[in-house]
Design a protein around this nucleic acid. Structure first.
Lengths: 341, 341
DNA sequence: TTGAAAGCGATACCAT
DNA sequence: ATGGTATCGCTTTCAA
């Protein structure tokens, strides 16, 4: 394994009969040096393709230019979109991104936080797991002076900047749309109410229903604790077979909506028409179902960008930030499944 | 910003009236130390929650425990699955993963390679871009003694271990299946032939067709250079409106197959029956289209795991590996779109 | 079994 | 404008 020994700053100094400090300054452009020296050093460095040892620089400067990014699950269209945005922004500012997934469980998140902190990331972007409540493991970053920005799935227990989607309003608009298309008996397949996003969407749903003087019925709200397609299928079956079947369903997520759609199709309901259907998240697949699934786009890419911008700014300012929350607008993606009754 | 000063190894040594070397040894379990000393040091370290400065350790040991991972596009079900597998395996072995996307263009890949090399990753996992030919930027890793493992999209120009999917056989089986279901006039929406995976799938398709004594017609093979849904739609239209319309289409990718399916549905062809359809990749969405799309599963997760295992082993053995290629089996996912004629 | 000390490579303070 | 040198925190010979 031929490993060519890399040239160091000291080597350059020795060869050029300069001091290491001078070479360092010439390369980094600090202080006052003669044009001639700078030229000479740069030329030599270029010629011998000198590359500073990042490990040494990081060590000395006590920073890594690495951002930690923790999401519940990478294999999830929304989160991968989010990551994509984060990568792009990080790259633009000369940062690298270390990615980890918590698997949506607390232990996974704690482990990821610990190892990232141990490695010395400069800051953390995190979308917390379903199980996270206290967040001491995240607090640890702040105590070491490393900024944290939460996004999408957040907790108010931690004082950090946050970037969230306007779940309430997104849900409100989605349900409004169903109503404007003529649906009147609107059910909601929700998530666990302890999860903030789920709760907000529920509240948006409820408000829209009430604002239009429609029935709000507890038994039209079903809790999908796993947010799975299966639950969408099962609860929809349950709703449609009940004494008071709804004529539209607003689902916490596209996946749940797919389950709902699959049941409705198998039971020969017309979608849209007999039953209107709305998802949330605008997964890629919603464009391709039949009928196409109407949904609410969360702009994951922009969200990742925004969170990363905030974080990098904090890192640069040696600031931990405060409790500010950036709320990203959603976009109603009207396709077929929600069209006129 | 209250930043509590972290305790160092020297601090422990001073407090315990030991030398730094002893403390280091006690903590790392090397050499022969008295039980008592070890206990004492560990206890003190624990009590003051000592965490070794990773930057210093990395610098000293000249390694980072970070693996670089470059894929064309994160927002792509197959690649995110792959990443997920890589993360899992890396975690198991105490490694971190720095993720970057090339955007499927050469310049993006070169940039990612450079920054990762500059940062000092211990090794590289890469699925190359469509534009990559020479691969000097990847060769740079090898020249610095850092192992590289290529996966999925690879080039034979570089002598590194590779993990690929058995595209040829996957395609062969897929087409066989269509034939066994009674289809006889099988077209292929292919990718660019310079891309190895695309070429292999084409060859598998061709072999299956020929092995059964069916017609192989050049005009039934269409090149989707962008591998887009639109191309799937357009070429399918073109095929079906031609003088010799096929009765089945094997698509290079599920996305292309979706385009094909959308055209066929809009033109009122029966799928399956009148036209059989097979995709490749087994995207999540293929389960949810209507009809469900038959596809070929590439086991992305296992692929990410395998590539990462190989890489970590090389890193640990200070080995660059050779040209070995691990071929992962594919799985035929038979759903509705390819069923009997 | 333990200690002393020499670095790893780059930076930055203090001189000159 | 440039040099000398301590230093970051840890590991690892070499000695004792």
């Amino acid at each position: 394994m031929a490993e060519k020994r890399k040239i160091t700053l000291k080597d350059i100094a020795r060869e050029l009969k300069l001091s290491p400090s001078t070479v360092s300054r010439a390369l980094n452009g600090y202080a006052s040096l003669s044009e001639e020296t700078i030229r000479q050093v740069k030329e030599y460095a270029e010629k011998h393709s000198y590359v500073p040892n990042a490990l040494a620089v990081n060590f000395r400067k006590n920073r890594t230019s690495i951002i930690g990014l923790i999401v519940p699950e990478i294999v999830h269209h929304f989160f991968s979109t989010t990551i994509s945005g984060a990568l792009e922004t990080a790259k633009k500012h000369g940062y690298h991104v270390l990615v980890a997934q918590s698997g949506d469980i607390l232990s996974g998140e704690v482990f990821a936080c610990r190892t990232m902190l141990g490695l010395g990331v400069d800051g953390l972007l995190i979308s917390i797991s379903n199980e996270t409540v206290e967040g001491d493991h995240i607090q640890d970053f702040l105590e070491e002076g490393k900024p944290v920005v939460q996004f999408d799935k957040i907790t108010d227990q931690l004082v950090t900047p946050k970037v969230v989607v306007d779940d309430f309003n997104g849900a409100y608009e989605a349900v409004n749309h169903l109503i404007s298309e003529g649906y009147r008996k609107i059910a909601h397949l929700s998530g666990r109410m302890e999860v903030k996003n789920a709760h907000e969407r529920f509240l948006g749903y409820k408000k829209a229903v009430e604002d239009h003087g429609l029935d709000f019925r507890e038994d039209w709200v079903k809790n999908c604790s796993a947010i799975s397609e299966q639950e969408g299928y099962d609860f929809t079956k349950q709703l449609m077979e009940s004494a008071n079947p709804p004529d539209a369903i607003f689902c916490i997520t596209d996946l749940v909506a797919l389950g709902a759609m699959n049941y409705l199709k198998s039971a020969r309901y017309e979608v849209p028409g007999q039953v209107g259907l709305m998802g949330f998240s605008n997964w890629m697949l919603s464009e391709y179902t039949s009928p196409n699934l109407s949904s609410v786009d969360q702009h994951g890419f922009e969200m990742g960008q925004k969170a990363t911008e905030l974080l990098i700014e904090l890192i640069k300012n040696h600031d931990l930030g405060d409790n500010e929350t950036v709320v990203m607008k959603t976009d109603l993606m009207i396709r077929q499944s929600s069209l006129g009754k």
